[in-house]
Write a protein that binds this DNA or RNA. Sequence first.
DNA 1: ACACATACATACATGCCTGTATGTATGATG
DNA 2: CATCATACATACAGGCATGTATGTATGTGT
Lengths: 201, 201
Amino acid sequence: MPKPVRRTQAERIEVTRNKLLESAARGFSTYGYGNVRLDDIARDAGYTRGALYHLFAGKEELALAVIDWVSRTWRAEVGEPAEAIADPAERLVWTAQAHARYCRKDVAAVLMSLRVEFAGRDHAVAHALTELMEPLKATVAKVITRGRRVGSIPPGPPPRALASAYLGALEGVTAAVGGPPHDVALTARAVRGVLGLPNPS
Amino acid sequence: MPKPVRRTQAERIEVTRNKLLESAARGFSTYGYGNVRLDDIARDAGYTRGALYHLFAGKEELALAVIDWVSRTWRAEVGEPAEAIADPAERLVWTAQAHARYCRKDVAAVLMSLRVEFAGRDHAVAHALTELMEPLKATVAKVITRGRRVGSIPPGPPPRALASAYLGALEGVTAAVGGPPHDVALTARAVRGVLGLPNPS
DNA sequence: ACACATACATACATGCCTGTATGTATGATG
DNA sequence: CATCATACATACAGGCATGTATGTATGTGT
């Protein structure tokens, strides 16, 4: 018996919460919001639904918490570091590559999975997702506009449409390729093409 | 009262079947396989579940029929015409553009929607989808290989990985852009980038 | 025109999953 | 160490969607 370590309540709850969030992310990502059973999520994390309902009000709140959790880590690992890059074109390409690396963690796919499932629906999860994507798209559009003013991104379709395509290419390619060793290079290729940048070769 | 036209049984059943398939495609695409209710699908087509269960063994068979139905129209409108184009690079770019136009019909999104929902699961629908995508990916890989031999596609990542990225970019961009007037141009940009082709400018 | 088959509607039964209420064990406080 | 609070498990209840069985109307063969 591996010694019943005495943990403080705050520690216990944080450990449990994180385990549940991770299992939930995997569950939502693999089975979808509607198909996954809370029992599976809890059991996968090593608990029962009792723990889950103690920490989250229900399935919907759990999904919202997962979205918040994943988007936080995304910002930390992809969004924030990208802001250090001055040149707009470089920054967008770097972001794409960082996103591809980020998506190697299986939990990352949960955002795309949920977005597809809730696309065009009136649901709290759907609203959370659009409130997450909308500013991101706006930011990308702004970077594109700046890039064109500076001359590092060639002219073409309107920035907002281009931003949508950029994000779509990002997710589509990373999801389809599904990991190393070519995910980063191929994602970069795709977004370069979308932005109208020449391939570096 | 609009005259009770006397239709033959074969006609009745075909009309009904098609209406149900179209509603099912919309339903699966909007709500997902697990979330949509067969009652909604039937009612949307102007029938009840009675008609649905008379024509299809159940939800699963309905989904399989929808997949078959959509893939047929895709082949007719995108796959087959593309084969007329000799040059490999041109053919792949044209296919992407034709796919973008094809996706303007709302029912087209059903394949991507189902693929995301069933990705990595052991389910009859999942198998049907992989059996549909696998040959397609193989074909694209072959065209890429030929294109490189001929010199119309530059060297780069292995053909299979490139084919995955090509299809991912295709779906990602069309789904994200979501229609005219820029869908075709942006999709072409993305796949050109993935394939390593120079942008025509 | 009659009996039969089939397209489709309505009514019923079953199972599963969410949500809630209750119970138990472990950590906190005096 | 005794009492309380909290993390988590187990037990119960309700709803909702699938699937099935039965009923009705429309087309078909003789």
